[in-house]
């Protein structure tokens, strides 16, 4: 048990992706860019080597296929407004229009938008991860009447398209006087069923014997959640954090409906409003803004993906 009880990371740091690596876990390899220790046979066997090269070639082609639309977007952000869409499609701008970036920075409130979005994304992610993983324990490990029905209800709500109940929800929140405040978005996004479902599924992979042993040691259910389940579900917490963060960051319709005051706008809403006019949108300008807005997500992702490390969750078994 000692192996896991040492890993009590503070929940708060867990909620943020940039959390420290949990201490005390064995077998945790370095940053994942590091290929890790190689055996000597790996280096010398020529067949393996060719296999590796083929793998990298395939991966690189694959990555190009994945990044092409993004590349087109970045290149288009350097074009003039009427040049973006053309037949045949053009990749390189006629003249490089850096002005789009200057305009976005100088003429729009992009810093305010980024600040609002960052605030929302962090708070929503924190609440979603906290309440979601907490509730998930109730669904995964406690047995009581109506549990499965309640859980099905949770999943069921995911199945209802938001647009169809958006108006009743808007009336409700307007009556609570929270529309046109950042609270509206926090309330809207933080208590979704997604996090509960994800964490519950993950908890079910953690051997029951661990909790049993902990109960024998005198831990309460709450302590088991905090000291055993949370540290052991870091990969799941990481993916929940990443996905919640990205979804909040990129949400457009929610902020559109609720945030009417330009001081409260998020990056997606601000960008679209800034570049849209009556009958059309200046896509070159929009793409410049979107390029800027992707950067924070990419950084968060690069930081977060290293928590998908093999052996993390199971190492507790032998502890």
């Amino acid at each position: 048990m000692s192996g896991t009880t040492q890993t009590q990371s503070d929940l708060q740091t867990l909620a943020l992706v940039a959390a420290e690596k949990p201490r005390g876990l064995r077998k945790l390899s370095g940053p994942s860019g590091d290929p890790g220790p190689k055996t000597s046979t790996e280096k010398t066997d020529p067949r393996r080597r060719i296999g590796r090269i083929a793998l990298y070639a395939a991966l690189t082609i694959f990555a190009i296929g994945l990044l092409t639309p993004f590349a087109w977007m970045v290149l288009s952000s350097l074009k003039s407004a009427n040049e973006v869409f053309a037949v045949p499609i053009r990749w390189l701008p006629e003249a490089w229009v850096w002005q789009n970036y200057v305009d976005i920075w100088a003429k729009s409130d992009i810093l305010t938008w980024i600040r609002n979005t960052l605030f929302l994304a962090v708070v929503v992610t924190f609440l979603q991860v906290l309440t979601g993983s907490f509730a998930a324990y109730g669904f995964a490990r406690m047995r009581f009447r109506g549990r499965d029905a309640l859980f099905l209800l949770y999943i069921g709500t995911i199945a209802v398209p938001w647009q169809s109940y958006m108006i009743p929800q808007f009336i409700l929140l307007s009556n609570f006087k929270v529309s046109n405040t950042l609270w509206a978005i926090i309330l809207l996004q933080a208590f979704g069923a997604f996090g509960v479902f994800l964490m519950k599924q993950f908890y079910e992979t953690i051997p029951e014997e661990l909790s049993e042993a902990a109960r024998l040691d005198g831990l309460s259910e709450y302590a088991i959640w905090r000291k055993i389940m949370l540290p052991l579900s870091i990969p799941a917490l990481a993916s929940l954090t990443l996905l919640t963060f990205v979804n909040t960051w990129n949400d457009y319709l929610g902020p559109l409906i609720y945030l009417r005051n330009p001081d409260l706008w998020t990056i997606q809403l601000g960008l679209k409003s800034f570049v849209s006019n009556l009958y059309d949108t200046n896509y070159a300008l929009l793409f410049a803004g979107l390029t800027i807005s992707v950067i924070p997500i990419a950084i968060i992702f690069l930081l977060g993906q290293k928590y998908f490390v093999e052996g993390l969750a199971t190492s507790g078994l032998k502890g």
Binding site: I171, S174, N175, L256, R260, N277
Partner: peptide, 19 residues
């Protein structure tokens, strides 16, 4: 000010909520 493309949706929401 309202968003140009979503004008009707936003206005509808506002009217429904009495604002």
């Amino acid at each position: 000010g309202y968003d140009a493309t979503e004008y009707n949706t936003l206005l509808t929401a506002d009217l429904a909520a009495g604002s």
